[in-house]
Amino acid sequence: MTEQQYFDQYMSRELADSAKRRKRFSPSKLIIYLLLVFWALTTIYPFVWVILNSFREKGMIRKDSFSVPWPGSADFTMDNYLTAFERADFKNAYINSITVSALVTLIVIFLAGLAAYGMVRYRFHGRRALHLMILASMMFPVFSTIIPVFRLQVVMGLASTGNRYLSLLSVVLPQIAGNLSFAIIVLMGFIRSVPIDLEESAFIDGAGVFRIFSKIILPVARPSFATVAIFTFLWSYNDLFTQTFFLRYPKEKTITLLLNEISSQAGVNYGLMAASVVLVVVPVLLVYIVLQKNIIKGMTIGAVKG
């Protein structure tokens, strides 16, 4: 059998199964939905709140931040968005943000995938020590590592050069390191649960470890990689602290950085702050919605085949 056939077999069983489960009906469904809807309300509400207030006249938010500013009413305004656009070179900032976060995400899932696979499947001396190292590094606060990293990158000729691409690289590298430990830990948990029979039958058919990794582990653990990718992207994108340290000239700035600067005195102007949040959140939600497809069973089959 080829690897493709293993998959077809594996996935078609899965498809049959999920179809079966979907048909099943139980009276407890109502309670399930009530609970799900309740939680959904708590998560949607703040989001709606932010969007509504991004259209609200400043000064009104604190007085009356929980009503709807209908277009045309006295406290409806587009000013917050206009102010934001006026102040910033948005196109460039979105490009910078997405370049940095996409690079970080791709490299992290690749390197972490390799490392997690090695850590889970191999038995070797020092494995426990390496595991502890990964675990410990997850807790290194960025506040205490940033200065040595900055000096290091100045010596390497990456930081503070005034060159846009080098500056972006000087954010990408520490962010890769910062997200690796999390990614390895999570992927280890997932890969450990992958049944080893698939790998063994592939091995009997003569596949080497790298082939097994790319043709079995990567596709089977696809949902797990998507999950890790989502969080890596999100954290890289929202990581203001590293960005502030390394991106200082206007053309280098990311969208998160730019909008944070505009609304840095947000204590005063909640409307501008809300508009900034909306503008920042949009790309992350897009990435989530795109990547989330990979976490859904039905979609996985098509994705692997295609």
């Binding site: 979105y94 206007p250 897009l286």
Partner: peptide, 27 residues
């Protein structure tokens, strides 16, 4: 939802362009 978000992004990109052409050329 995806479409709506994409639309918002396109609008913000174009709006961003219009407002900042001068800065880009300056750069």
């Amino acid at each position: 939802l995806a479409t709506a978000l994409a639309v918002i992004m396109v609008i913000s990109l174009t709006a961003g362009c219009g407002g900042t052409e001068t800065t880009t050329t300056k750069a």
